[in-house]
Computed example of a mutant assay.
Amino acid sequence: MKIDLSGKTALVTGSTAGIGLAIVKGLATTGARVILNGRKDASVAQALADVTASVQNASVEGFVGDLGQAEGCESLVAAHPNVDILVNNLGVYGPQDFFETPDSEWSRFFETNVMSGVRLSRAYLPEMIERGWGRVVFIASESALNIPSDMIHYGFSKTAQLSIARGLAKRVAGTGVTVNSVLPGPTLSDGLIEMLKDATKPGQSIEETAAEFVMANRPSSIIQRAASVEEVANMVVYVCSTLSSATSGAALRVDGGVVDSIV
């Protein structure tokens, strides 16, 4: 099975680190031209250097802007008006008790995790439809189905992404454009590594520490470890490819079996 996206332009939001950066590298490997995004010049420059060093002949460029704001989305679309593949990866997360979560945090999570994807999908889908081919992917989370009691505001935003993706898939039915969600579970991203750094015992690898964390906090995990960012990116790259043309409106789990469901 060979994935070739030569001649396609892909945009991956919130992609200077973690799963987003892994997706950028994966798409660049297929020959796609990839636009990566971050909020700061330094992080975007570092990510561009990383991709260039990791992927031979990578066609990659950066856009600096806060896509959690309508103005940032507008500036991005003005700078890059045409994309074939949109990966809505931008997201914020963090535990906070429901009774201590102010309206401002609910709004921030909604604007960043939900409305960024809404605005960009609204901007880019019409031309995908006109061309008769396109891919839109929302990076959700197993927390969309398994709502965490300490991050209800986060779980809500991820469930909203599933609803939007499913509805959009129906809206563009029969056009050659597909819309899907990918739901990672516990993943060994930069954020998790930083969180577990102090919990790592002498002589213990970060992977072992992460596995202990997963079994303590997500005991239903079937793989009984954290996934790598590359494992998540592999699913996303496939969904973005020409090979996935019969998959649309799906919520594809890369959660290691955390969600205890047979569908």
Rank of each mutant, 00 (worst) to 15 (best):
L90S: 11
I129D: 04
K201I: 03
E230L: 00
I35M: 03
S221H: 05
D190Y: 10
T247K: 04
D50R: 00
L192V: 03
L125M: 10
T52P: 01
A49K: 12
M1T: 08
T13K: 04
E194C: 00
S228P: 13
P202Q: 15
A53Q: 15
G91T: 15
L252D: 01
T187W: 03
V236A: 02
P186R: 03
N146S: 08
Y154T: 00
M235T: 04
L192M: 06
D260A: 15
L188M: 13
A250L: 01
G14L: 07
Y93D: 11
R119S: 11
A226V: 01
S149K: 12
T159Q: 08
L162W: 12
C240T: 12
V24Y: 02
V77K: 09
M128A: 13
A10C: 04
L196G: 05
K25D: 10
P102A: 03
V24W: 03
S244F: 09
G203T: 04
A160P: 07
P202Y: 14
T112Y: 03
Y124K: 01
S75C: 13
T242P: 09
E230K: 13
V83P: 07
E231P: 06
P81H: 00
L188V: 11
G257C: 14
I193K: 15
L243V: 00
D84Q: 07
L192W: 05
T30S: 10
L5R: 03
I164T: 09
A58K: 09
G167R: 07
E71P: 01
V258R: 14
T178M: 15
S261H: 10
D150Y: 14
G132W: 00
A144V: 06
A17N: 11
R135Y: 07
E127H: 10
G185E: 11
E111Y: 13
S15P: 10
A28E: 02
Y124M: 01
A28H: 06
T112Q: 04
V172C: 06
I152E: 05
E100K: 13
L192Q: 01
G20W: 05
A17L: 08
V136E: 02
F110Y: 14
L90T: 08
Q46G: 10
K25N: 07
M235D: 00
S59N: 15
V179S: 03
A70L: 08
F109D: 08
G176A: 05
V137Y: 03
I222G: 05
V177T: 10
I23H: 01
A10R: 06
D66F: 00
G174N: 08
